[in-house]
Design a protein around this nucleic acid. Sequence first.
RNA 1: GGGCGCGUAGCUCAGUGGGAGAGCGCUCGCUUCACACGCGAGAGGUCGCAGGUUCGAAACCCGCCGCGCCCA
Length: 873
Amino acid sequence: MDIERLREQTRFEPTEVEPRTVERWLASGLFHPRPGESGEGAYSIAIPPPNVTGTLHMGHALNGSIQDVLIRYHRMRGLNTKWILGTDHAGIATQMQVEKALAAEGLSRRELGREAFVERVWDWRSHYGGQIVEQFKRLGASCDYSEERFTLDDGYARAVAQVFVALYEKGYIYRDRYIVNWDPGTRSAISDLEVEEREETDTLYSIVYDLEGGGTVTIATVRPETMLADTAVAVNPHDERYKDLVGRTAILPLVGRHLPVIADEYVKTDFGTGQLKITPAHDPNDFEIGRRHGLDQVSVIGEDGRMTAEAGERFAGLTVLEAREAVVAALESEGRVTARDPYLHSVPYSHRSGQRIEPLISLQWFMKMDELAAPAIAAVRDGSVRIVPENHRKVYLDWMAEIRPWCISRQLWWGHRLPVYYCESCRAVHVAVSPPQSCPACGGPVYQDEDVLDTWFSSALWPFATLGWPEQTPELGAFYPTDVLSTARDILFLWVARMIMMGIEFTGRPPFREVYIHSVIQAPDGRRMSKSLGTGIDPLKEIGKHGADAVRFGLLAMSSTQDVRYSAKKVQQGQALANKLYNAARFALLRIAEQPGVELSELAGEPRPQTVEDRWILSRLQAIKAEFAARIEVYDFSHAALCLYDFVYGELCDWYIELVKPRLDLDGSAAPQQRRALSETLLHVMRQTVALAHPVIPFVTEELWGYLGGQGLLAGGTWPQAQDDLRDPEAEQEVARAIEAITLLRGWRDSVNAKAGLIVPARIAAEGYDDTATLVARLARLELVSRNGAHAERSVVAAVPVPGGAVEVLGAEGLDLDAAQRRRDAERERLQSEIARSQAKLANEQFVAKAPAEVVEAERAKLERLRAEIEAV
RNA sequence: GGGCGCGUAGCUCAGUGGGAGAGCGCUCGCUUCACACGCGAGAGGUCGCAGGUUCGAAACCCGCCGCGCCCA
């Protein structure tokens, strides 16, 4: 590497370095493992496939950073590591985007026809799809880009069909007329999980129905238009007021239908009058009551969101809201509306189209979940799938315990079409992977079901369908099950739970050992980050401004076990770290290069400690390696990132480099062996630091690895594990003591207004500085005076307490001694109060008797230390 | 209605039984021969409120107030 370039370039420039570093990584083939390549075992992660139409948002950037840290760390640990990449066809989302584009041309999908429309979507995908994969590269994500999957690829589609057929044959998949969440926006049924409840205030109307044979009931409803479909009136069986009503008949106003009065536990006695209209075709709860009591189902709202002929001539064709007004007006004219009250309740909306859900009865395909859920519950309960953080475990188990059938058919065109065929002649139903040419029963012509599967049905197969299942491929053998699934919690039910169920059902094993649920990054003001709110922050823009390393570090550092606000400061901290590391390496290399008799290319980069600070940094390096590894193992990315920062700033740069500077001077006074040894040690420390930080900030570390003379690409290098033989508690203690003393002395200097450059004559009257006295003196800007040397006869003008005693200052030139006196008084006061506190504690018999011995002992030692310090002042 | 979580320095957050912490911001001082994306020093907190357990509580328990999310 060109050392001259390094000399001139005083800052790390991510926009210059990062793109070319990505190219080097991609060209290396490091990200594409071959099955069974490493004897150390395999490590794999299946990426949550982003929507093919999507672009990178903060959630992707965070999850990409998390997964890449895990992938790079394990790759460097020698495991055969694969990050499975791909995109999701995202049925509704993609179809809606293309429909929007068509609308701009004045076209609709129905005008185009199914085949042409689907072709348009494929075209659209090839033009605009997959951008996000390029964006993952820019982030530095080390996915296996050479094997990108798509959930609608041929092989994947075969896996989907095979799963459908198998589940159908087991009786888990069935067709039913059932109440579903109808989304008038997409004109499709959607699953319970795609429905979002919103609090809204509506008018609660009280309406009087006559009873046959005299009397009335009064029902309360926010949806008077659905009364046209009422088929019963219900009261609670324990409601004493209405005991006599049960079994009588009410007359439905406007329609005249006879409604039985039934008793059902569902009815709340304290809501409204305690009398409830039952509309099985337009309310999920009423539907269940209807099934329990064998009530008729009358549908008055159609799939277009308008009233049907069943609603009667006066109302047919009206929208739901128009019908509501018309029905209320009609009831009013009969004097049946007795009250209107504002009422706050939750209203279902489609997560997909944003429109209000219309519950209605529809012929759909469903999947029974109970049998699949049982082993998926067991897997989490017995720990074969571990959910981190653990509190999500309970959320998962609670939801799984109450799992309901899943509506899997969608009235869309973009997606996996159901492998279901109907005979035109005999109406027989055939479910098969390969389409029958004619009806196997009667030979008649067959046609395929129009519906496609819910996107999540195919996503549920992701970890194994991407590896070639149902074929027993080498990839499947090597990389399944995957090690961890990292995701935000919003798709725990939609996706994660279903993957566990399908994985166990079809491969006999859960698809991953651990599920890591990461933070949701909110806008800085605490709102949701979203395009529509205008609160989104584009990770690529941030990468452009601060570099991918900075964004990765920032996101990891701000992440937590709960939701967090986006912190631009953390990203800047990451940028500062990259630059700091760059400059530390730059300093080390330039100084090594300038050492007479030392040649960088001849150095091995092995530790050759000669002094206490050498032993100290090597020991601290082992500690930080162990801590980083431990944090990664428990998915504590924020502390992993921050401990790197603290090490680089707080130990390597602020102290070690400052401590060794004089030993790297250029006047040639040091012996060549010593220069060489220090160069070795410094190079070792820099290489190790850069390697250990690589999973978090891969770009700057890869760049520096080249300058530092590392072998090959760092991305393919070895992660430096902690070496216990380099641990040195004594050196750690000695240098920690020196650091504390220097800090105290600097504080003292400031308080006596000593000019920054002033060298103060002083004497160390304290224990434990044998090896560090000159270091302390230099960094605290003292001139050490020996007992019988130059200034020895001068009197002590100040004593600065430091661990183990004090530093006595001799000579007052340039010092504000009044300030020194004030400082000394303040210090004495502080010590006095601490001593008093400590004494009081030890005088407390309860404390001495009940606190653990070591705590009492520590308190005694502390008191002794304080007394020594106050003595020294 | 049920569940989960949060409330600590101006801001964002860490700390989970034994002397209140970090980053950023702020103040003061530094062209100290890697870095001003830098260096040194400093100010700043009744740890939401009220009770309890304990020799000892920011931390554990109970209640209240405020905020967020999930489920029904």
